[in-house]
Amino acid sequence: MLAEVLMALIDTARPTSTEHPGYTQTLPCAARSVVPARSLVRIALETWGLGRLADTGALVVTELVSNSVTHTSTYSIRVTVSRPGETFVRIAAADNSKAIPTLRTLSSDHEEGGRGLAIIDALTWRWGTDLLPRGKRVWGDLKCEVVE
């Protein structure tokens, strides 16, 4: 099953540009999209020699995709992994909702949800939201060391 997912991912993931290398894939806005999103992040990071960030990146994209699934009624999401600079990697999920996510303060440790952005905030160097003509993109940046 994993081999089939990886083959489909390799067949459909597309480079974003030569100026800022990256990969992007459009996925259904459904819980099952977490698996290919995580694979996209892991493959991109390994390709760039940043495999040490793979677990963190996979967790960040899991929360981004899960937030879109939970809080929007969009049909698809666009997951992107890019290198806008030498010192960081950006992991993003775009959907058709204009609702801006906010970092919540939980009133109890017993609440089952509401930790997605708190996890992203804890794992990333910085995170944010970009409004798009047809929705928004939520992103998180992971710092990476430049090896010379």
Results as ranks from 00 to 15, higher is better:
3 A>D: 15
3 A>Q: 15
3 A>I: 15
5 V>K: 01
5 V>T: 12
6 L>Y: 09
6 L>T: 09
6 L>F: 13
7 M>E: 15
9 L>R: 02
9 L>D: 04
10 I>C: 05
11 D>V: 00
12 T>L: 13
14 R>P: 10
15 P>V: 00
16 T>N: 07
16 T>L: 12
18 T>A: 15
22 G>I: 03
30 A>K: 13
31 A>H: 07
34 V>R: 07
35 V>C: 09
36 P>C: 10
39 S>D: 08
39 S>N: 11
39 S>Y: 13
41 V>A: 08
42 R>T: 13
47 T>F: 09
48 W>L: 06
53 L>A: 05
54 A>V: 04
54 A>L: 05
58 A>E: 13
63 E>I: 00
67 N>D: 06
68 S>K: 01
68 S>C: 14
69 V>T: 03
79 V>N: 00
81 V>S: 02
83 R>I: 07
86 E>V: 09
91 I>E: 00
92 A>T: 12
98 K>I: 12
98 K>W: 14
100 I>S: 12
102 T>Q: 08
103 L>Y: 04
105 T>A: 10
105 T>M: 03
105 T>S: 11
107 S>V: 09
112 E>D: 04
114 G>N: 03
114 G>L: 10
115 R>A: 08
119 I>E: 04
121 D>Y: 03
122 A>C: 11
123 L>E: 01
123 L>K: 09
126 R>N: 01
126 R>S: 02
127 W>C: 04
129 T>G: 07
130 D>I: 11
135 G>F: 04
137 R>S: 06
140 G>A: 14
147 V>D: 12
147 V>F: 11
